[in-house]
Design a protein around this nucleic acid. Structure first.
Lengths: 128, 128
DNA sequence: TCCTGTCTACGACAACTTTCGTACACGGGG
DNA sequence: CCCCGTGTACGAAAGTTGTCGTAGACAGGA
């Protein structure tokens, strides 16, 4: 299972698999910004499989790898870690930083606002 | 400067320094959940100093360490990384996961919503 | 003065990560 | 049948991280 946290390189590769749904060694390699050696990519895929983050099926003479861990799951872990260790539990401070740092479209901001509205009203619901 | 990203242990220690403002080796050590050996903590502090994330002043016979990198700065880096690599740029998906995963008080949700309202109206302002 | 406790400096060492070289399998074309 | 291209398997090697043992400085009390 996805207990062990992912290293930098492993995350790079998971990112490709999440984006594309699956990938062979060559496909993944081509999508990496710096295109490491073929066997390097293979090695990391094998490690990820060992860690239980992905699995493979045979496709012709090659392997096709599929994510077993959902990005939201890994993202949740990463976010709570940052929230605790860097922002000491202040989700607003964290959100403020996100809004100021990342380039987020007004459109997206609006949808995020609606999301929070929903969350708020759902919490109210629960109160009764 | 704070270019190199922080490892797990380094982040643990930065977290203590951010929370307390500063700390000696012993102080930091006492605040770590698992209290590693004294020299272990010292070593990581020396590495953090080498990386430019902290500095020290002499205090009596001991050193007192101070953060040089602000938590928001490090947090911004970490958040954009997660946004890009895990949520592929979708800040809403990321926020949704945060809200569902971390325990956030209704109070905090409301303040976050206001924050987004402000951000939205400021963006509108800019349009004119 | 000498011992003891508290501190930093230095370096060893194991574990893990990342990289890749080399070997081996195997199907298809000549 | 033999070779070539495209795969995986295996393991070496270098770099990084995390841990700590040991040494040495130094102040304060007996």
């Amino acid at each position: 299972m996805g207990r062990d946290s992912l290293t930098e390189r492993e995350l790079d590769i998971m990112s490709v698999l999440w984006r594309n749904g699956s990938g062979t060694v060559s496909e993944v390699r081509e999508d990496l910004a710096d295109e490491p050696g073929y066997t390097t990519v293979l090695k990391i895929l094998q490690i990820l499989e060992e860690k239980g983050a992905i699995r493979h099926e045979t496709e012709g003479r090659a392997y096709r790898y599929y994510p077993l861990v959902a990005p939201e799951e890994e993202g949740g872990r990463a976010l709570t870690k940052i929230l605790d260790k860097i922002f000491h539990g202040s989700a607003e401070l964290m959100l403020a930083r996100l809004v100021s740092d990342a380039e987020i479209s007004p459109d997206q901001i609006e949808r995020m606002r609606l999301l929070l509205e929903d969350a708020a009203s759902r919490a109210e619901e629960e109160d009764r």
